[in-house]
Structure formats: structure tokens, C-alpha cells
Amino acid sequence: MVRETPVITEEMVQQAVAFHGHLCPGLAMGIRAAEIALREVGRCTEEWEVAAQVETDMCAVDAIQVLVGTTFGRGTLMHLDYGKNAYTFTSRADGKTIRIVSKPTAGGPMSEEHQVLWQKMRERTMTPEDKKRFWELQNARARVILGEPLENLYEFTEPPALLPRRNGSPLYTRCEACGEMVAQNKARSVGNKTLCVPCAGKSGQNSSRTNSNPL
């Protein structure tokens, strides 16, 4: 059970909003995910390293980067392209790990008006009045999420630690199709050629990595 001691302040919310560009339900879910990470494993700093694995590329990840301090460049943030609103946080110091998955009911049901405006947004048929009302509803729903008990938003498990790799200085080679440089551990071997991932995909042939690089 996650303790209900508040750690997210309005200042932190505004930091996430400034980075992301607006307040929305997705960002609010990321802020609450960051709240769990800060409470359970701490913030990623030079002295205390925390790793995050995110299974989506939605708005929530921006809040996690800003508030937890995990980044791709430092090798403390890994994107797993699973299309799930699920996040795993691990302390590299002691291996403590928590995985959280958003509940289908998180944030409550979207109103019919909100759904209609979502559809208009997708179809690019919004009027200026529609846009104003849409963002009013987005902000209102985000504020509901920010005030919900965490157990209403996420399910919690404690899996074994699975840490993203530590970034180093990769060795590079030249793709034999496009001529661009590619990290060796990302290159593919196709026939007798070393190719970058896009060129390997264009070849229409089965490919395998020239060098296995686990997490």
C-alpha cells in the first residue's frame, strides 16, 4: 500500500506544465506517477540514481522526466513501446522497484460533451469556442486526477528490478546502404552487409543485430 503523505506541490505541478506546455489529464497522471516514484524510490540525482521504464509515449512521461529527473541521455529512462499507461521505477542504490498501471476508471468517466469535443479535435473541426471549452474540460479533469487518492488511479506491484542500461560512449560504424554512421549495438546484419535499422527494414530481408545489447 502506498502511503498518502503528500509530496507534490502546486509549484511542482507548474514545473511539469511549463515543460509540457499545458495541463491535461495525461500530464496529471504523470504527475501522480512521479509522486509515487518520489515517495517509493526517490528522485534521480548525481548522488542517487533512479531508473524509469515507461510503456507509453503519452503526456505523462514529460511529468516523470521533470519531477523524477530520469532522462534518455543519462540512461535512466527507457521507453518500452507497449501502448500501456504503465511505469516502473527502480532505485539503483538498493534495487527497490515498483510498477504501476493506470486503472480503467482513473479520472472518472469523460462527459458526453468532452467526448464530442475530443472527436472534433481529431477531425480538426473545432471552432475557437470549442477549443476554449475543450481546454476548460481538460483542465477540470486534470484537477480531479491531481486530487484523487493514488489507489483510485493506479494498481501497484513490486516486480524484480530490471534496470535500463547505463549510457556510455558507443562505437560507431557506417551503414553500407545509406552511408550514415550508426552505433554498432544498434546496427543490423543483413546478408553480408551492416545496415542501420531503417535500411535493414527497407531491404525486405530477415535481419539480426550484429551485437546483442541487453538492457
Rank of each mutant, 00 (worst) to 15 (best):
L215Q: 11
E10T: 11
W135K: 06
D130N: 06
S203C: 06
Y82W: 11
T194W: 08
R141T: 00
A16W: 00
E4N: 13
Y154A: 03
T56I: 02
E113P: 04
M1N: 13
D94S: 03
S207C: 06
G73H: 13
T76N: 10
P25V: 05
E136V: 00
T70E: 09
E123L: 02
G201R: 15
V41K: 05
L23R: 05
G95H: 06
E148M: 10
A183T: 04
P214C: 05
R188L: 08
V144C: 06
E155C: 11
R165Q: 14
Q15C: 04
L146C: 03
I98E: 04
R165L: 11
Y154C: 07
D94C: 05
R141I: 00
E113I: 01
R141A: 04
N211R: 15
A52L: 10
V116E: 15
Y87G: 01
S208E: 12
M1W: 07
P160Y: 10
N192E: 13
K120R: 14
M78G: 00
A187S: 13
S212G: 12
P160L: 07
Q138E: 15
Q53L: 08
N152M: 07
G42F: 03
W118C: 12
C196D: 00
A34H: 01
D130P: 05
A161I: 03
M12K: 13
P198N: 08
R165T: 12
V190F: 01
P170E: 07
V66D: 02
V182I: 15
A177S: 13
T70H: 05
C199H: 01
E151H: 11
P198V: 07
F156C: 12
E47D: 15
Q138C: 12
Q15P: 04
E158R: 14
N213M: 07
D81A: 13
P109Y: 00
L153R: 05
T127E: 02
D62I: 00
E4R: 10
V190Q: 02
A93W: 12
E47A: 14
K202N: 13
T194V: 14
A60M: 06
W135S: 03
C59Q: 00
E11I: 11
L67C: 10
L171N: 14
L195S: 00
N85G: 09
G201V: 08
P164T: 04
R39F: 07
T45H: 05
A33V: 01
A177P: 00
C178P: 09
E55M: 14
H79S: 08
L162G: 08
A177Q: 11
G147E: 15
F156I: 15
L38S: 03
K202H: 07
K193F: 07
R143Q: 14
Q119W: 07
V2E: 09
E136S: 06
P159T: 05
P149W: 00
L38R: 05
T90Q: 09
K193C: 06
M121I: 05
L171I: 13
Q184F: 10
A142E: 05
R99Q: 10
A142F: 02
T88L: 05
L195V: 05
L137A: 09
T194H: 04
A52G: 12
R43H: 07
K131G: 08
R3I: 08
R124T: 07
M1A: 15
L163W: 06
G147W: 03
